[in-house]
Deep mutational scan, measured.
Amino acid sequence: ATNIVGKVKWYNSTKNFGFIEQDNGGKDVFVHKSAVDAAGLHSLEEGQDVIFDLEEKQGKAYAVNLRIK
């Protein structure tokens, strides 16, 4: 899925991951530091509006192509 809109539920910059809540009511999506770095960001803030693509690997969904809304 592409261009999914959501809000950062939480992001832990020490542990380098967090979760994004989808605006469409879907399951929360894992986001890793690598996606944050690829977006040219240092971190994510709770409540921040983002747009992302959804990829699945080994049955787990995660956010890629992250951008600030």
Results as ranks from 00 to 15, higher is better:
Ala1Asp: 11
Thr2Met: 12
Asn3Ala: 06
Ile4Thr: 06
Ile4Ser: 07
Ile4His: 06
Gly6Lys: 00
Lys7Asp: 01
Lys7Gly: 02
Lys7Trp: 13
Val8Ile: 10
Val8Ala: 02
Val8Pro: 01
Trp10Asp: 02
Trp10Gly: 02
Trp10Met: 09
Tyr11Asn: 01
Tyr11Phe: 13
Asn12Tyr: 08
Ser13Gly: 10
Ser13Val: 12
Ser13Tyr: 12
Thr14Phe: 13
Lys15Asn: 07
Lys15His: 07
Asn16Arg: 14
Asn16Leu: 08
Asn16Asp: 05
Phe17Thr: 02
Phe17Ile: 05
Phe19Asn: 01
Ile20Gln: 00
Ile20Met: 04
Glu21Gly: 15
Glu21His: 15
Gln22Tyr: 15
Gln22Met: 14
Gln22Pro: 10
Gln22Asp: 06
Asn24Glu: 07
Gly25Asp: 07
Gly25Arg: 11
Gly25Glu: 08
Gly26Ser: 13
Lys27Gly: 10
Asp28Pro: 07
Asp28Asn: 08
Val29Tyr: 07
Phe30Met: 04
His32Ser: 07
His32Phe: 05
His32Gln: 04
His32Glu: 03
His32Ala: 05
His32Asn: 06
His32Gly: 08
Lys33Met: 05
Lys33Trp: 10
Ala38Phe: 07
Ala38Ile: 14
Ala39His: 03
Leu41Trp: 15
Leu41Val: 13
Ser43His: 11
Ser43Gly: 12
Leu44Pro: 03
Leu44Thr: 01
Glu45Thr: 13
Glu46Tyr: 13
Gly47Asn: 09
Gly47Leu: 05
Gly47Phe: 06
Asp49Thr: 15
Val50Leu: 11
Val50Lys: 00
Val50Arg: 00
Ile51Leu: 09
Asp53Lys: 03
Asp53Val: 04
Leu54Ser: 06
Leu54Gln: 07
Leu54Ala: 06
Leu54Asn: 06
Glu55Val: 12
Glu55His: 14
Glu55Ser: 12
Glu56His: 15
Lys57Ile: 11
Lys57Met: 11
Gly59His: 13
Lys60Tyr: 10
Lys60His: 14
Ala61Pro: 09
Ala63Thr: 03
Ala63Val: 07
Asn65Trp: 03
Asn65Phe: 08
Leu66Glu: 00
